[in-house]
């Protein structure tokens, strides 16, 4: 049995409405980095929400380590697209609220405080830990979001377009940090993106979605580039370019967006 298995998953929001997703099948091994890519409206966020347990599956389902997913939980921590930090708490308090909730029974107060700081240090946000979200930049907010998710020690880290709203330089910087964290902790990651370079650079496999409604997995591409990966060295690497070309071909030739929205 796979670590995480998605079996014949279908999602419809109303009983009469057409299915948003259909026949999604995917097996994920521990420690894998999976990118899900597709045009807007292809249901990739829906898929992530089902894995997170925030949305119910209409048919089929998701099994994580032999247990079916039917509600959200800290073993599937989500980094939301718009960071979703609580604005009335400082950065440290935003991480602490998750840590207190998840480890309230198993760790002492001092251990929890220490664990919060360790995770803030992991994303290099310790110096700004006592600022409120409104006082820090978008990239910093997203780093706190990642620290909050990692602090739950999730079995799977779910990233919902985590760098979508950031400028290119900040985005590259954060991608490097996520690669470094993935290398260090070996966390299983599922990341939604619509950036081809990001998908190829970060992931072991790229799941390419067809257009919705009734979207499903069109193709899964293995990215056989050894880690650690370096964005500068890869820029001219034939394996990188080949993988990139395949994803581009899927997205823009075979499954081009039906109408320009």
């Amino acid at each position: 049995m796979a670590f995480l298995e998605i079996t014949d998953l279908a999602v419809r929001f109303k009983p009469t409405a057409p299915r948003v997703l259909r026949e999604v099948r995917l097996k994920i091994d521990p420690g894998e980095y999976i990118a899900i890519i597709g045009h807007s409206g292809c249901g990739k966020s829906t898929l992530l929400n089902v894995i997170a347990g925030l949305l119910p599956a209409s048919e089929g389902g998701v099994v994580l380590e032999g247990k079916e997913v039917f509600e959200p939980g800290p073993d599937r921590a989500v980094v939301f697209q718009n960071h979703s930090l609580l604005p009335w708490l400082t950065c440290r308090e935003n991480v602490r609220i998750a840590v207190d909730q998840v480890f309230g029974a198993s760790k002492s107060r001092a251990e929890r405080a220490d664990w919060v700081d360790q995770n803030l240090a992991l994303v290099h946000m310790l110096p700004a830990a006592d600022k409120r979200p409104a006082e820090i930049s978008g990239g910093m907010k997203q780093r706190i979001g990642i620290a909050r998710a990692l602090a739950m020690q999730p079995k799977v880290l779910l990233l919902d377009e985590p760098f979508g709203a950031l400028d290119a330089l900040t985005r590259a910087h954060l991608q490097d940090q996520v690669m470094e964290i993935h290398a260090r902790l070996g966390t299983t990651v599922i990341m939604i993106t619509h950036d081809v370079d990001e998908a190829v650079l970060l992931s072991d496999r790229i799941v390419m979605m067809t257009n919705g409604p009734e979207a499903t997995i069109g193709e899964v591409l293995d990215v056989a580039i050894p880690r650690p990966r370096d964005r500068l060295a890869l820029a001219a690497d034939p394996r990188f370019l080949a993988a990139r070309a395949k994803v581009m071909e899927f997205l823009y030739a075979r499954h081009a967006r039906p109408e320009a929205a």
């Binding site: 347990g53 939980g73 939301f80 979703s84 609580l86 609220i97 909730q101």
Partner: peptide
């Protein structure tokens, strides 16, 4: 978003009201 955060960290009952709903509605 705030409700989703609370669901992921399994914050519920009075704690959910005190830590998420009350400050967000303040």
């Amino acid at each position: 978003d705030y409700r989703n955060v609370a669901r992921v960290i399994r914050l519920s009952g009075p704690k959910y009201f005190a830590k998420i709903i009350l400050p967000a509605a303040a």
